[in-house]
Design a protein around this nucleic acid. Structure first.
Lengths: 195, 195
DNA sequence: GTGCGTATACTCGGCGCCGAGTATTTGGGA
DNA sequence: TCCCAAATACTCGGCGCCGAGTATACGCAC
């Protein structure tokens, strides 16, 4: 059976083991420290299943079982050669080919016509405010990282997200004003239906 | 047990039944016709489980089991009052509150430093091309829908997506040139590491 | 030296999602 | 009228993901 590139957590594991051998719990710690959990969903259950999968496909191997002090045994894993090439291939694929995804907001906004126009306007304005907060939070974080002397490449994904969130913000303001002024195409029918 | 707003397919089911009673297979057909499957992931397995869940929570009810011709029995469902209010509440939540999501590309680009700069440039340029195709496909679709006389509200989610894809395209060209010219922060170290 | 909160390290049962598979019916061509 | 492809309508076993739960060990206070 071939390895399936489903859970990006497996990618993170490969990337971490490309640096140095680790045991699963340490991977989690490291991901936390580096704010990687912002980009890749992490939870313990998935982590251990993913590690097991990778081991089964020999992309990583249990390199040692240490016992530090009287702690329970820890299985330390290391990346293999096939693992390294899988890491690079997967990475290339992830960047080169846009994946079909289903953002929740798209689902929501596609049915906005089911809400009365003034309700719709209200919730869109709420989202505007929330998105503004995301934007300032991101700006603060970028400031801090740049201040720490980290190069842009180390937080390039935040740069990307900033651009995306800004674009959403712009679209939301457009839609809000178009709704407020009744200039969005089909407004008359919309307004009439909810009276 | 409370109903959990996990699978957006359940939202689609509620929205369809808000129009008129239907049996599951008909829901799928309708979603296909309206290109809703572009926005909300649809597959038969999930559809029937989701319908069952909704019925269990009395957001919908089996209103009849028809037998058209000699076809197998079909269970027709209808939305309830609690179902209708659930639909509106969920919709409001979906629009008002940005959900934490994990786009695959963010995961990929966050590790772009693992690839040698010229490899990275190549895959980013591949993505540029792919995104351009998405853009023209979207433009064609929008053209067609507008030509059919449908109001903008009927395809507002495509308008949103268009804005997002455009923003991604812009960011990609920026990153590509910054990589090509070596002006992205940390380039020297990146280039040096892969030699 | 004893108590207790926190960190460490992992487990496990369940549940939702998936999609290929099944069985029947309809429609159209030869 | 016989056959086969396409449409109709749903089923089911499996698998990946989840996150609360468990158990031990360390360190700090008093």
């Amino acid at each position: 059976m071939l390895f399936k590139r489903t859970n990006p957590l497996a990618l993170a594991v490969l990337a971490l083991l490309a640096e140095r051998p680790m045991h699963p719990y340490e991977m989690a710690q490291t991901m936390r420290e580096r704010h990687q959990e912002e980009v890749i969903k992490l939870n313990y259950g998935s982590l251990y299943t993913v590690v097991e999968q990778l081991a089964k496909h020999e992309l990583i191997t249990a390199s040692a079982t240490q016992k530090a002090g009287n702690r329970p045994e820890r299985t330390v894993y290391a990346i293999t050669d096939t693992g390294t090439s899988e890491l690079h291939d997967w990475l290339r694929e992830l960047i080169a080919l846009p994946a079909k995804e289903y953002p929740r907001f798209e689902a929501g906004i596609s049915m906005v016509g089911l809400l009365p126009p003034d309700d719709a306007l209200a919730v869109v304005e709420q989202r505007c405010a929330a998105v503004d907060e995301q934007l300032t939070a991101l700006a603060v974080l970028l400031e801090r990282l740049a201040g720490m002397g980290l190069p842009q490449l180390a937080w390039i994904e935040l740069d990307y997200r900033m651009a995306m969130v800004r674009a959403e913000r712009a679209w939301l303001t457009w839609f809000a004003t178009a709704t407020r002024e009744g200039t969005v195409g089909g407004y008359d029918h919309w307004e009439e239906k909810h009276r």
